[in-house]
Simulated scan of single mutants.
Amino acid sequence: MTDDVTDQGYRSIFTTAQDGLRLHARDYGERHWTRLPVVCLAGLTRNAIDFHDLALALSNHRHRPRRVVALDYRGRGQSDWDPDWKNYDVRVEVGDVMAQLAALGVEQAVFIGTSRGGLVTMGLAAARPALIRGAVLNDIGPVIEARGLLRIRSYVGKLAPPRTFLEAADLLRRISDARFPALSNDDWETLARGSFLEREGRLEPSYDPALMKPLAALDFEAPLPTVWPLFHGLAHAPILAIRGEHSDLLSPETLDAMEQAHPGLERWIVPGQGHAPLLRDAPTVNRIASFVAAVEDSPRPAAERGDLARA
């Protein structure tokens, strides 16, 4: 494990996956803090940058500062690209996350999963339930709308690299403005900086374009499989389900069904945003901070305590 200190409120930490790939994480906050940490997991093509503002807010909270870890999956952000695109699979990413958290000394946390990050969180609940004290599922549920995946498939790995971040922000605005009317110019630039990285004076996608291959293999003529069994694996944990008002991936009907299946589930709708909310507007940041604090104050179920003792 290697450790690079930055002046932006976090440390860049690199660990090694079981197959030798180098994986990156941002670590916000002092390690010696005893408060319940937060782990942030990004969407399909996204990375740790997406959580920067939220992580700063939580790690520097006036009353309850805490450690926040934001991870880059393989093939995203500053993590290595995988030479075998078939490893861009949620099951592999679950294993990577468990290895990263073990190296970082995180034994339990509240997980914030955006889109694919929510699926990884559900996978972790099946593999290591003791890791999860609570979950924030950002615009994702056990039923994924095909139209949302089709939209994502239409651009993943196909965007021409822009010359500047301002040009990148304009590009993303043209693609998604109809679903995100509430975003400011600063929001679009923040989104752009998570979509492209500057390497040797040029902007390149912040993800391996081979991520398109698993999407291309999906058969949209048949109904997409649901992941209700994985969602039920979160039965032991409080859930805050966030939905963008204009989301095309998480439907209101699925959100209702999630609430019926998990009576303790809380919901939060982000106005003027689609899939997936940026989690940087003040009301949403405050709502997440309150949820994390409430999870920290709640006792762990006896079964979960037993799992942790055996882990």
Score class of each variant (00 low, 15 high):
residue 6 T to Q: 06
residue 8 Q to V: 08
residue 14 F to E: 09
residue 14 F to M: 04
residue 16 T to W: 05
residue 20 G to A: 02
residue 21 L to F: 10
residue 26 R to V: 02
residue 26 R to M: 09
residue 27 D to P: 04
residue 30 E to A: 15
residue 31 R to E: 13
residue 31 R to S: 15
residue 32 H to T: 14
residue 32 H to R: 10
residue 33 W to Y: 07
residue 36 L to I: 10
residue 38 V to C: 04
residue 38 V to K: 09
residue 39 V to S: 02
residue 39 V to N: 02
residue 40 C to Q: 05
residue 40 C to A: 10
residue 46 R to K: 13
residue 54 L to T: 09
residue 55 A to R: 03
residue 55 A to T: 11
residue 56 L to A: 02
residue 70 A to S: 13
residue 73 Y to N: 02
residue 74 R to V: 09
residue 78 Q to W: 11
residue 78 Q to E: 14
residue 78 Q to M: 15
residue 79 S to L: 02
residue 79 S to D: 03
residue 80 D to M: 00
residue 81 W to Y: 13
residue 85 W to F: 09
residue 86 K to P: 01
residue 89 D to K: 04
residue 90 V to L: 10
residue 91 R to S: 11
residue 92 V to S: 10
residue 95 G to R: 09
residue 104 L to K: 08
residue 108 Q to R: 14
residue 109 A to D: 07
residue 109 A to W: 08
residue 112 I to R: 00
residue 116 R to G: 05
residue 117 G to C: 10
residue 117 G to R: 01
residue 118 G to R: 08
residue 121 T to Y: 11
residue 123 G to N: 04
residue 125 A to T: 12
residue 125 A to I: 13
residue 126 A to R: 12
residue 128 R to P: 03
residue 132 I to S: 02
residue 133 R to F: 01
residue 135 A to P: 14
residue 137 L to Q: 00
residue 139 D to P: 08
residue 140 I to E: 08
residue 147 R to W: 09
residue 149 L to Q: 10
residue 152 I to G: 05
residue 155 Y to A: 05
residue 160 A to E: 14
residue 162 P to F: 03
residue 165 F to G: 00
residue 166 L to C: 08
residue 168 A to R: 01
residue 168 A to G: 12
residue 168 A to M: 06
residue 169 A to G: 01
residue 169 A to W: 01
residue 170 D to V: 00
residue 175 I to N: 10
residue 177 D to T: 07
residue 182 A to K: 05
residue 183 L to R: 10
residue 185 N to M: 06
residue 192 A to L: 00
residue 192 A to G: 00
residue 196 F to P: 01
residue 197 L to E: 15
residue 198 E to G: 02
residue 199 R to S: 11
residue 200 E to I: 03
residue 203 L to S: 02
residue 205 P to D: 05
residue 207 Y to I: 03
residue 208 D to C: 06
residue 210 A to P: 04
residue 212 M to K: 15
residue 213 K to A: 12
residue 214 P to N: 03
residue 214 P to V: 02
residue 215 L to S: 08
residue 220 F to S: 05
residue 227 V to G: 00
residue 230 L to A: 15
residue 232 H to V: 07
residue 235 A to S: 10
residue 235 A to C: 10
residue 241 A to M: 09
residue 243 R to C: 07
residue 243 R to Q: 14
residue 244 G to N: 07
residue 247 S to Q: 09
residue 247 S to G: 12
residue 248 D to S: 02
residue 249 L to W: 01
residue 250 L to F: 11
residue 258 M to F: 06
residue 262 H to C: 01
residue 262 H to V: 02
residue 263 P to S: 04
residue 263 P to M: 00
residue 270 V to D: 04
residue 270 V to K: 00
residue 271 P to L: 12
residue 271 P to W: 09
residue 275 H to Y: 15
residue 276 A to N: 11
residue 279 L to H: 06
residue 280 R to G: 11
residue 280 R to M: 14
residue 281 D to K: 00
residue 281 D to S: 01
residue 282 A to D: 13
residue 284 T to S: 03
residue 285 V to Y: 05
residue 294 A to F: 05
residue 295 V to M: 06
residue 298 S to W: 08
residue 298 S to D: 14
residue 303 A to H: 12
residue 304 E to P: 03
residue 306 G to W: 15
residue 307 D to Q: 13
residue 308 L to G: 12
